[in-house]
């Protein structure tokens, strides 16, 4: 038996909007720790890892570990039927082949339940070791989204170069080239507006902008984004989900042969 009651149902709606274009089908894993997911895109270039900790739910009952295969597009269709202020409860029976999403309006005058068929998905779980990254950039998530969107109108790839001086985003295309440099800036009124760059050594990596733009669909989840890089390793783009956990995107770099 599984029953997870999330007061801030809009969080789950935003999570689905953030990942449904990257991943088609995925297993949601439920354990005593929380509600989580790890899934790669069909080309195995990008991976999303989601964690919503048990403590973040108003009620969290998970009698035994359960893995539920869902089509994210169908799940998104159902969650779109929930109001932004609704409380969402996820319910499933052990060994069952459906999951139920229950939506309660804030004043309890409307209660809906939507039952969705589960699917069997071969799980492809990657072991991602804890890594000390050589460059960690924290910046406003909207700024990062703006840069990725702007550069993708010029080129297909972005070179992200981080040094003590700042972080440079560069692209080239048929019509020309573009560079955006963000310097460390901590003298801001609100901490979420700061750009903070922690550097162990300079890092420069090349990525497909198509994926970066897809990751920025998580922008509504957090005011800030953290980009962690080491030379010749996948980048991690992390959006913290307030008091609940995180959504992390991993993207393999493009490397000169």
């Amino acid at each position: 038996m599984l029953e997870l009651r999330l007061l801030q149902g809009s969080l789950l709606k935003k999570v689905l909007e953030a990942i449904k274009d990257l991943v088609t089908d995925a297993n949601f894993d439920c354990s005593a720790t929380g509600f989580s997911l790890q899934a790669m895109d069909s080309s195995h270039v990008a991976l999303v890892a989601l964690l919503l900790r048990a403590e973040g739910f108003e009620h969290y009952r998970c009698d035994r570990n359960l893995s539920m295969g869902m089509n994210l597009n169908n799940m998104s269709k159902m969650l779109k039927c929930a109001g932004n202020d609704d409380i969402i409860t996820i319910k499933a029976d052990d060994g069952g082949d459906t999951v139920t999403f229950m939506f309660e309006s804030p004043n309890q005058d409307k209660i809906s339940d939507f039952e969705m068929k589960l699917m069997d998905i071969d799980s492809e779980h990657l072991g991602i070791p804890e890594t000390e990254y050589e460059a960690i950039i924290r910046m406003p998530s909207q700024e990062f989204a703006r840069i990725c969107r702007d550069l993708s109108t010029i080129g297909d790839t972005v070179v992200i170069s981080a040094s003590k001086e700042g972080v440079k985003f560069s692209t080239k295309g048929d019509i020309g080239s573009a560079n955006v440099v963000c310097r460390q800036n901590t003298s801001v009124d609100k901490p979420e507006d700061a750009t903070v760059i922690e550097i162990q050594q300079p890092v420069s990596l090349t990525f497909a902008l198509r994926y970066m733009n897809s990751f920025t669909k998580a922008t509504p989840l957090s005011n800030t984004v953290t980009v962690s890089m080491s030379n010749e390793l996948p980048v991690v783009v992390e959006y913290k989900i307030a008091e609940m956990g995180y959504i992390r995107f991993y993207l393999a770099p493009k490397i000169e042969e």
């Binding site: 492809e124 990657l126 072991g127 991602i128 497909a208 996948p234 393999a252 770099p253």
Partner: peptide, 14 residues
């Protein structure tokens, strides 16, 4: 031109 790598080249399947 840089070549796109797969994540499997960096992380092992578990």
């Amino acid at each position: 031109t840089p070549v796109q790598n797969d994540l499997n080249e960096f992380y092992a399947m578990v």
